[in-house]
Amino acid sequence: MGFPTTRLRRLRSSIGMRNMVRETVLTVNDFIMPIFVTHGTNIKEPISSMPGVYHFSLDRLNDEVDEIVQLGIPAVLLFGVPATKDAIGSSSFDTNGIVQEATRHIKSRHPHLLVIADTCLCQFTDHGHCGLIHVHEKNGHQIGEIDNDASLAYLVKAAVSQAEAGADIIAPSNMMDGFVHAIRTGLDEAGFTNIPIMSYAVKYASSFYGPFREAVSSTPQFGDRKTYQMDPANVREALREAEADVLEGADMLMVKPALSYMDIIRLLKDQFDLPVVAYNVSGEYSMIKAAALQGWIDERAVTLEMLTSMKRAGADIIITYSAKDAARWLAE
């Protein structure tokens, strides 16, 4: 009888053996591909800080979506880049808003592709915050603060408008207190009782969002989002945030970002009986792209290892800008 270490070596002795005893299997069904849609015509504009990712106008969207479907990726997550912005983000709930138009366009061509609508105000407001701003004077200075309750009403309008356009899943990313309850109530009252909510339950005030903010021009014009996004140093707070969303009616719980928060993914997986979503965010994607372009790493090997580790940590679903590449690599 061999020592345990010898037994382990035997189980790793060939590719076939390793595949047979593999504990975590990554498949194309795990992926959601984000898409950035914008007004205009004949636009396929590279996002400089996210190599391989583009802004698409509706007339250039078909090739992208057709490829996603052909690769077997089951869902897309839509982010809108509006033509105009205002203080309340009114284009977020406009019937002819860019996310609503893109949703109708995609569903008419690929009715079985799941369309997930990001529900937030940041890319639609002229101040770049995720909610409405209340301005008041303090010590002779104009101070802007998030008006949480007023923001909820507009987020509900956006969610209902997205559902009316045909979105299959509403994904609120705003981190306002009580947003899941407000949106669940609004959807139910509008007759969309079967539309699930993929809650950005644990969203950290992270430095990994930089490329995304370039992509949607949503950098706050003043202050930051630390009053409504989580402190990266906190763990127990993540449980409180997630539990609140579960009680308010969330159907899926997201952790954002993913790579530096594997412990949080595992925590939610162990604590709650709901699907856990990991968002492999723009900064994580761009770091790998940048290193690969320099020839410092093997992009394919590192990307698949990273995505596998997210699933191993407990993610049931992974939102990733690498979805198309990973789908091709897994099919080879």
Results as ranks from 00 to 15, higher is better:
2 G>Y: 09
3 F>D: 12
8 L>I: 08
9 R>L: 15
12 R>N: 04
13 S>D: 13
16 G>I: 11
19 N>E: 10
19 N>F: 08
20 M>I: 12
24 T>P: 12
31 F>V: 12
33 M>D: 10
39 H>W: 07
42 N>S: 08
43 I>F: 03
47 I>K: 01
48 S>K: 11
50 M>H: 07
50 M>V: 10
52 G>E: 11
52 G>K: 01
52 G>L: 02
53 V>D: 01
54 Y>W: 04
54 Y>K: 04
57 S>G: 05
57 S>L: 06
59 D>N: 08
62 N>R: 11
63 D>K: 14
63 D>Q: 13
65 V>A: 14
67 E>M: 14
70 Q>H: 08
74 P>F: 05
75 A>W: 12
76 V>G: 09
77 L>N: 11
80 G>A: 06
82 P>K: 13
83 A>E: 15
83 A>G: 11
84 T>M: 03
88 I>A: 11
89 G>P: 11
90 S>C: 07
99 V>D: 08
101 E>V: 14
101 E>P: 06
102 A>W: 05
102 A>C: 13
111 P>A: 13
111 P>K: 15
113 L>H: 11
115 V>K: 05
115 V>S: 12
116 I>E: 01
117 A>K: 06
118 D>G: 04
119 T>I: 13
120 C>F: 04
120 C>V: 08
120 C>E: 03
121 L>S: 02
121 L>M: 02
123 Q>S: 14
125 T>E: 04
126 D>E: 04
127 H>E: 00
128 G>K: 15
128 G>M: 07
135 V>E: 01
136 H>F: 05
137 E>C: 08
140 G>I: 03
142 Q>D: 05
146 I>A: 00
148 N>L: 06
150 A>W: 00
151 S>L: 00
152 L>F: 00
154 Y>G: 00
154 Y>T: 00
155 L>H: 01
159 A>H: 09
163 A>Q: 06
164 E>I: 15
170 I>G: 07
178 G>D: 00
183 I>H: 00
184 R>V: 07
185 T>N: 06
191 G>M: 11
193 T>V: 13
193 T>Q: 15
194 N>D: 15
195 I>G: 14
197 I>F: 09
197 I>H: 10
197 I>K: 15
200 Y>L: 05
205 A>M: 11
208 F>H: 08
209 Y>S: 10
214 E>L: 15
222 F>K: 12
225 R>M: 13
225 R>N: 13
226 K>A: 14
227 T>R: 13
231 D>K: 15
231 D>S: 12
234 N>A: 15
235 V>S: 14
235 V>Y: 14
238 A>D: 06
242 A>F: 01
245 D>L: 11
245 D>C: 09
245 D>F: 13
245 D>P: 07
248 E>T: 03
248 E>V: 06
255 V>E: 07
258 A>H: 05
258 A>G: 02
258 A>Y: 05
262 M>S: 06
270 D>H: 02
282 S>H: 06
284 E>F: 02
294 Q>G: 11
294 Q>M: 10
296 W>T: 01
298 D>R: 00
301 A>T: 09
302 V>A: 01
304 L>D: 10
305 E>L: 05
310 M>N: 04
310 M>R: 07
311 K>I: 14
313 A>D: 07
314 G>M: 11
315 A>Q: 05
317 I>Q: 09
322 S>D: 13
322 S>T: 09
326 A>V: 03
326 A>F: 10
327 A>C: 12
327 A>T: 06
328 R>F: 05
328 R>T: 10
329 W>D: 14
